[in-house]
Design a protein around this nucleic acid. Structure first.
Length: 551
RNA sequence: GCACCUAUAGUUCAACGGAUAGAAUGCGGGCCUGCGAAGCCUGAGAUCCUGGUUCGAUUCCAGGUAGGUGCACCA
């Protein structure tokens, strides 16, 4: 039911300018502040009255009442029977409710992107969970979505790793280990400790990376082993989290994939005239009007950097998915400047239109005392978080994972999060388990209802709703717009906020109105429960949160 | 030094320039012989400071203050 759309059109017509009609708090089912914004001079309440007079002539039949309140808001009340009808539609044809924002559009979403041979920590968790939710949202809203994982599988750290493995490691031992990545990280930490005492190790590491780049067989083999060892860990994590990637056979196009695809990009940059040699011999991209600080493209020894590979990545995406593809990078907020630089370069090269490249930022996890650091071994492994969560969730995996995910999704994602076990693994209040519990409870009622003889609403002239019923039905009305907004803004927390409020409203209703065994109201209330459970079910699924059978 | 982000109840967060600033948690008081108490009802409790724009500012602008992040050979 497109009440909001119809009202928007009507009000715009009556006011003679485009007007916004939006969900309201407790002042109406929908509200418009057009009279307050109107260009006309005069008392806003009088302006509002003028608009309302016109509206009353065209009043659609679903409107019960239009009133003017406060400084001049126009509030709309929907007839109860139409609220019920809307809920019936949710039950009957839910999909018709979902706005098709992405019709015919493609989007690549790059998320998670952990580093090979590094810990998968609570930090990568954020990108994984938020990116997955954004991808699901866009898919729901009609986009064709490509899920990519831009693995950190290339770069100078592999030189260090190779040196460390050769000096202090034992390949067979690592292979036999249940968690090879743990061994690799220990070696990586040891490298940094030893390099403090003996700086020549750094040179040795650089040499090995150069060998790797040139295709040295020993280096390649060791590198490949590191990749394979890491995937043992990643596969386990992604399967526990229920996250999948669609590109490159489910593994995503890592940085190494672009190792041989940078030449043309560098040439294009050279031709742009903005690539110049910096003070110490490296080549940097200088921005017109010094809009940003220069971005390094080639080191003084001619080797490439992260930025070079990223540009090659986007060039590849353009040719692979088409020039209109939307590209989202779900990456930490600390890379904001970097992405602004990349986007600007890509715009200057004429690759993308404004708005076609998006950095979906997330803040990072930190300790109250400071930043987490792999080199210092000062990190929290995801595995430990999951096992602690299970402990607190009576060993129910879905509940444990749900708690972790909801915690990451419920707040607006660009904020930093101070790591706190109790906060992160909350099982009550605004939490994953609360949401799951609400659905499980609703389903349980529905299961009981299905074995009872069906009940019809008695034909009453006054088919009015009690307060709690009406409140639930009203919330239900807003779901499509919430999906639209969450998608437009790449903001899963918008959906979380809505779902949590719906769950609260439903629980309140559940607790004060008997659903089963009430002759006059059961059929309606079962239908209502059904509708709520559908919305919660889909909403949670979109957020990547599974619902347990029982809890 | 320059740039960006953040500042809302004790704590953690909402609020697309609008009405009485919403929640969660913690604290106080209630509710399980009524469909599931991981729940419900109820009380107290907040917009960093100084100006400005506006009919109207938590929201926009300027200047402070406090915290965080980034800025040439990492990714």
């Amino acid at each position: 039911m497109k009440f909001q759309q119809i009202l928007t059109d009507l009000v715009s017509k009556a006011a003679g300018q485009s007007a916004a009609v939006e969900p309201s708090g407790h002042f109406g089912d929908y509200t418009s502040n057009i009279a307050l914004q109107s260009q006309e001079k005069g008392n806003p309440r009088l302006v509002a009255q003028g608009i309302v007079d016109k509206l009353l002539a065209l009043k659609p039949e679903f409107i019960k009442e239009i009133d003017i309140a406060g400084p001049g808001f126009i509030n709309f009340w929907i007839k109860d029977e139409f609220l019920v009808q809307n809920a019936k539609q949710v039950v009957a044809n839910f999909h018709a409710q979902i706005p098709n924002l992405g019709k015919g559009k493609k989007a690549v979403i790059e998320f998670s992107s952990p580093n090979i041979a590094k810990p998968f920590t609570v930090g990568h968790l954020r990108s994984t969970i938020i990116g997955n939710a954004v991808a699901n949202l866009m898919e729901l809203a009609g986009f064709t979505v490509y899920r990519d994982n831009h693995l950190g599988d290339w770069g100078t750290q592999f030189g260090k790793l190779i040196v460390a493995i050769k000096r202090w490691g034992d390949e067979n031992e690592i292979s036999a280990s249940e968690r090879p990545v743990k061994n690799l990280v220990e070696l990586y930490v040891k490298f940094h400790e030893e390099a403090e005492k003996d700086p020549t190790l750094e040179d040795e590491a650089r040499e090995w990376f150069t060998k790797l780049e040139k295709g040295n067989q020993e280096a390649r083999e060791l590198w490949q082993k590191c990749v394979d060892w890491s995937w043992i860990e990643f596969d386990s994590i992604y399967s526990q989290l229920g996250v999948k990637f669609s590109e490159n056979n489910g593994r995503g196009y890592g940085e190494s994939y672009f190792e041989d695809k940078m030449g043309p990009v560098i040439e294009e940059l050279e031709n742009s005239g903005n690539l110049q040699v910096g003070k110490e011999g490296a080549k940097l991209f200088f921005f017109p009007d010094e809009e940003f600080t220069p971005l390094m493209i080639l080191k003084k020894d001619g080797s490439t950097l992260y930025a070079t590979r990223d540009l090659a990545t986007d060039k590849f995406r353009l040719s692979h998915y088409g020039k209109d593809v939307l590209i989202l990078n779900e990456v930490g907020a600390e890379q904001e400047l970097y992405f602004k630089q990349i986007f600007k370069i890509e715009e200057l090269l004429g690759w993308f239109k404004p708005g076609q490249r998006v950095h979906v930022k997330h803040g990072f996890f930190r300790f109250a005392s400071g930043k987490m650091s792999t080199r210092k071994g000062n990190v929290i492994w995801l595995e430990d978080v999951i096992s602690e969560a299970k402990k607190r969730a009576d060993n129910q995996t879905e509940v444990a994972i749900g708690a972790i995910k909801w915690n990451d999704l419920k707040r607006s994602s660009h904020l930093d999060v101070v790591f706190d076990w109790d906060e992160m693994l909350s099982m009550t209040g605004n939490s994953g388990p609360y949401m799951q519990y609400t659905v499980v409870r609703a389903r349980s009622v529905l299961a009981k209802a299905s074995v009872l003889p069906p009940m019809a609403d008695p034909p009453r002239a006054d088919n009015s709703l009690v307060k709690e019923e009406r409140e639930v039905l009203r919330q239900l009305l807003y779901y499509p717009e919430v999906i639209a907004r969450a998608t437009r803004e790449y903001a899963p927390h918008v959906l979380c906020t809505y779902l949590f409020e719906l769950a609260q409203t439903f629980n309140s209703f559940y607790n004060s109105c008997p659903i089963l065994g009430d002759e006059e109201n059961s059929a309606k209330r079962i239908m209502l429960t059904h509708a709520v459970s559908k919305v919660l079910d889909q909403g949670l699924t979109v957020l990547g949160i599974q619902i347990p059978e029982t809890m």
